[in-house]
Amino acid sequence: MLAYSIRRLITALLTLFLGVSLTFFVIRLAPGDPTDRFLTPSMSPKVKAAITEKLGLNEPLPIQYMTWVKNVIIDFDFGDSFANGRKASTVIMDALPYTLLLSTLSLLFGLLLGTVSGVYSALRVGTPVDRAITSILMFFYSVPSFWLGLILLGIFSIELNWLPGSQITSIFHERLSFFGKIGDYAAHLILPVLTLGLTTAPVYGRFVRSSMVEVLNSDFIVSARARGLSERKIVFNYGLRNALLPLISILGTSFPALFSGAVIVEVIYSLPGMGRVMVDAALGRDYPIIMAASAVAFVAVIIGNFLADIGYAVADPRVRLGDSS
């Protein structure tokens, strides 16, 4: 177990290092010039050269890379944003909580909805109810999140004016009481969470359904029935436990999809999260922000995969970690 954890940690650090380094070179070799944002056609090339030097972009690429690595490792300094001079780590830390909040709430909502509908469907396999649930799951599995988001936005925010459709707070947010503020956040998060949750739920729902159907047809359930155990006990004690086990493994690996889903949903609903930051940084060639954001994205995926493996080993004693088969 210890040896496994250490090997795992080394792999994770290696992934992080290689990935972030790769990102560093890819973005710098890609076309586009970050100094473009400061320039107007009337400026002399001298101004451009001065700005390039000020941003440290005149050094050879390997030197820039070494400087970047040194600053990050020694001072945990990702540099300052080209766009507004704020520290890259501050920009990310301001945005990250919103993305984490949106992702977590959507994951919980999607997981609950998916598990309940998947189990319910599996218990009535072959009936019209099962077919209806399966079709609904297929619908939300195939609907693009940006389209669903736009439809919900159009109906509930623009047309009916029931819910706010952009930003995370209202203009009068500061004047609200503590609970008023929480309510304000909640109102702004309903549509985004609904969008991301509804498109996440089918992933789990489809998985749980087929897993549950398989378990309910297995020999130990048949023998439990033969021994006359109550249906409730069979479903909850024997069925669910075994059917939900594999869910843990796809939970961790679905983190990246959740993260990218959050990026899209944030852009639709103008939420101040990582999505907005990443899109703006990529469009403006804001290298320090791109690098800091990519480090966060790599860490998120690595943690997700790690949690999946650990969770699986904890839930299923048959899994021996480190077993290469």
Binding site: T15, G19, I27, A282, A293, N305
Partner: peptide, 28 residues
């Protein structure tokens, strides 16, 4: 086998959508 699967593990740790955003976004 070990070598190839390590590479697979490594690449699965990459945030795919973000890389796509960068490569596709920066590369026109």
């Amino acid at each position: 086998d070990t070598f190839l699967m390590r590479i697979v593990d490594l690449l699965l740790g990459f945030p795919k959508f973000f890389i796509l955003l960068l490569v596709v976004g920066l590369g026109s």
